[in-house]
Design a protein around this nucleic acid. Sequence first.
DNA 1: TAGACGTAGA
DNA 2: TCTACGTCTA
Lengths: 173, 173
Amino acid sequence: RKWVNTAKLLGAVPGVEVGDRFRFRVELVVIGLHRQFQGGIDYTKKDGKVVATSIVASGRYANDAKCADVLMYCGQGGNPSVADKKPEDQKLKRGNLALKNSMDEGTPVRVIRRRETLKTPSILGARSGRNYAYVYDGLYAVTNCRQQRGPYGKLVFMFRLNRIPGQPKLGRF
Amino acid sequence: RKWVNTAKLLGAVPGVEVGDRFRFRVELVVIGLHRQFQGGIDYTKKDGKVVATSIVASGRYANDAKCADVLMYCGQGGNPSVADKKPEDQKLKRGNLALKNSMDEGTPVRVIRRRETLKTPSILGARSGRNYAYVYDGLYAVTNCRQQRGPYGKLVFMFRLNRIPGQPKLGRF
DNA sequence: TAGACGTAGA
DNA sequence: TCTACGTCTA
């Protein structure tokens, strides 16, 4: 028997609509939107090359321009946001390579954004709460890839993603 | 209304029997055995002093003597198992203080041990599997607390716990 | 804000 | 083996 995982496919995931909300990253895995438990960039192989399937913009890297329909997304690696470890130049591999290839191949990328929300109870004990959720934002195209200096002076990749037209608008949250 | 969390109580948790198995640490939280998502030592306040409620022996610190009914448990802090960060002497605070107080007060500590098991599928995609589980091992008494040199030459706490008699034996797993 | 015996995928 | 835009409690 063959296991199917919609998260490895390019484009929309059946049953998931623009605006759908999730409280935990692990839910994105279970629902088949994004297989990476923690990683921000998920990807798969297409014709021998890795291309991105989905990204999660949590704002941890603090480089996501919030313009409507445009997302600036920082690449991964080099610890651009962790002062603890030694920062390094990001390399064109793994997720970064995948996003670059997505641009070259013109393949769509699912975008999930972390957004502020009203206080929701935690499933663990209903004591603590959280004030954010992960929202499926629809399909984007990678339109640009450049290198620039990050907050620690090291090279980081910066990807520009444009929301593909014709999708439902994102309402107020 | 008042929220009750059995994990904050000392002693056995209603509905959980010796030998019960769990696949994920988070299940221990949900079931009320151990509230710490990652931390190995859970504790609560009793008469103004912190005492341990439960510990998880995953073997990460590699100091758990496997003698039946006796558990040697390394304290927390100082990164005794992470060569990456700078190792330091463990301090008598948090979980370490709680275990010390448990010894002085004579309060019981729930013990959960990570044990090898047959391959079980992951809930995430049923692709990857894991070969271990967390098993509730029953109540133990802290009978000794000493400091010694850890693998990186720094002081670590080593607690000796003896299984309290009269509990069901742990069968083969 | 920092610490913690986590997890899964590459 | 290592990385990763996690998630909780104190």
